[in-house]
Design a protein around this nucleic acid. Sequence first.
DNA 1: TCGTCTTGACCGAACGTTCGATACAATGTA
DNA 2: TACATTGTATCGAACGTTCGGTCAAGACGA
Lengths: 189, 189
Amino acid sequence: MPAALIPRDEVVRRLFDAFRTFGYEGATLARLSEATGLGRASLYHYFPEGKDGMAREVIALAREWIKSNVNAPLVNVGEPATSRLKTALRNVANGYDNGRAACLINIFGIGDANDVVREALRETASLYSHGFERLLLDAGVQKSKAREISFDTVIQIEGALVLARALDDRSVFTKRIQKLEKQYLELIG
Amino acid sequence: MPAALIPRDEVVRRLFDAFRTFGYEGATLARLSEATGLGRASLYHYFPEGKDGMAREVIALAREWIKSNVNAPLVNVGEPATSRLKTALRNVANGYDNGRAACLINIFGIGDANDVVREALRETASLYSHGFERLLLDAGVQKSKAREISFDTVIQIEGALVLARALDDRSVFTKRIQKLEKQYLELIG
DNA sequence: TCGTCTTGACCGAACGTTCGATACAATGTA
DNA sequence: TACATTGTATCGAACGTTCGGTCAAGACGA
């Protein structure tokens, strides 16, 4: 299994998938090894700080994903607000595999994570809502209202993911995304 | 440590707290033992089916909690709809310790639970929204709308819990409960 | 040959689970 | 009343397995 064939970014992406599927405690080294195709020891070559280091890099990947797939489209001033919103929500739906995949912001919030992870989690969650807030501000929505709605957006995304998983019904998630789009279009359309 | 002093119900309640705090994988026998004051072996006297059996009883407790603390108040036809709603939402806030405690519907939805747990989870989540749906139907809201709003309610509760934990800010949850109350009062007030 | 990468054996600790023994109150028997 | 029996609750110790993590040695491309 020549690991040089899979670039480091791809390794982190596979770790990301494993963590969001099994949770932090459930993502054992055996599973992380299987998910990446790398031996346990090889993983420690790439991530000398072990499982914790992998988790940190995975969170960093999540943050970058939000930046480029959610926030960047939302603040892309070259486009009209409505299409910016649609692009972002489409990316959100795809990013969670239409409700099949969990969100790291939820996953890593369970149990007792260390301080570094907790802080990264807080930043990432905050970042998430800021993108939507910016869009609303651009569209002329007043500050406090924009803040409230953007928080509400992330709450609905996270909540829909939880309920879709519990009910084993992905449409709970996809329908909620559609409803979010409608709500936004009423505001900024 | 004479365990006869703590009734079985109390043991299950403490297990409930441990599971929702640490997650299924994170709730090790050592932690469950510490949470209950019972030795590991003693836990197997009460729960011959082990950790899995404990999880099932804990989910059953959650279901009973929803029935008596959320659904029962919501369908209490002796009271006006508005006070029914207020009672239920107050109980919800208390039940999650104002956003400090996680929801089992989320916790047990992570990782690969067995079929029995998955089914219990689905029933419990479904039960949760049904209470709110009933209230709305009683207040004259039409069927499809009631269904949509009741789903939305559970989504908001779950999402707010996730975000409050990630941001380490309980007010995210309590404010959302207040907002839910306001939304309902506009509908049924 | 040098440095990067992989491998498989290995570590101590913790995992979920089981076991045998014990303490004790309730019940049966004389 | 006296003693044996039974059933419940608890414990410490240990089971085999897996955990996260380490190590020395070798494979392989530059």
